[in-house]
Design a protein around this nucleic acid. Structure first.
Lengths: 172, 172
DNA sequence: GGAGAATTGTAACGATCGGTACAGGATCAG
DNA sequence: CTGATCCTGTACCGATCGTTACAATTCTCC
């Protein structure tokens, strides 16, 4: 595992798949190919710091690929393309959404709130630029439906709920 | 803790709050007031059986309070009342939805799929009885939005997304 | 009351948990 | 080449994990 971004990427997949408690250092070590020594050298704060770093990494990616373009260009269509690709058409879980459901929500509360607030606000701004009324409630609803679509697609083992939700969200 | 239902209720809260991995036997013992001996007497299959029993218990409650009335009377308004109360206006996590996001989804796949399928089908039937077109996609969307509303309400520490979602879903 | 079953608390099991210590390899400037 | 710094594999720490075993207690029914 060469650079820090690759490590954070692999780290994210482990947290995504097993949750915070289920992501043991042994599993993380296996997934990243890094021994405990390297892991604790990179993240002296241990698991807590690893999770914080992953959340920050994800937020940074969204900021660059989604939030910022949304604010600058107001291009919602392009955003849905990126969102659909990122979440692998409902086959990939939203780590931050998953963390919001368990006791991890309290530990990473500010980062979790920030992620969703940024997304909603950026989308609301884009809607407003497009002349949409009630832009903020619409943005809340849109983000909410993406999260629900992921849950349902995972639960049913079927990407259709996600696909039709994204298709529907594109209409506005 | 007197009867089995009370135990399952307390058990559910532990799984809800800490997730499957985070719900240790020690925590479960403390939450239920039952020693390890009693726990393994009630659930010889250990944690796995506890989780299965909780999921079944939840499904049974929904079947009685929500799915069945929905199929028989088609009263969607009454359903939303029960749903809002059960999920404490977004303050209470959907255990089965949460299980669908991590590796627990594979372990309890059939029960998870069954829960959501029952809900969607019952709601679709009610919509159809009410003369709604595209009843099934509408039902999928409604259940999906409830799940998303829970995620977002938890993430923001704010019940408003849940409240407005339920209010909106009542309109159809 | 007393035999038998059902329930319970306690102690212990091996395994694994997150985290630490540290010796030695790799790397690089001088 | 030398010394210092960075990096990493390994062994180990106490604590806790899920589970088992079992003796003691409580309950049930005759």
């Amino acid at each position: 595992m060469s650079n820090r971004d690759d490590v954070l990427e692999a780290l994210g997949e482990v947290f995504r798949h097993y949750g915070y408690e289920g992501a043991s250092i042994a599993r993380i070590s296996a997934a990243t190919g890094l021994g405990k020594g390297s892991l604790y050298h990179l993240f002296p704060g241990g698991k807590d710091e690893m999770a914080t770093a992953v959340i920050t990494h994800i937020h940074d990616w969204f900021e660059r690929a989604i939030f910022s373009p949304l604010r600058l260009t107001g291009d919602t269509d392009g955003m849905w393309d990126h969102v659909a690709a990122y979440f692998n058409r409902g086959g990939r879980v939203c780590l931050i959404g998953a963390f919001a459901l368990a006791d991890t929500r309290d530990r990473f509360a500010t980062a979790i709130t920030r992620y969703f607030t940024c997304w909603i606000d950026a989308l609301a701004l884009a809607y407003r630029q497009g002349g949409v009324e009630n832009a903020h409630p619409m943005a809340v609803n849109a983000v909410l439906r993406v999260q629900g679509a992921i849950v349902l697609s995972q639960a049913l083992g079927n990407t259709q709920p996600f696909e039709t939700t994204i298709a529907d969200l594109r209409l506005h």
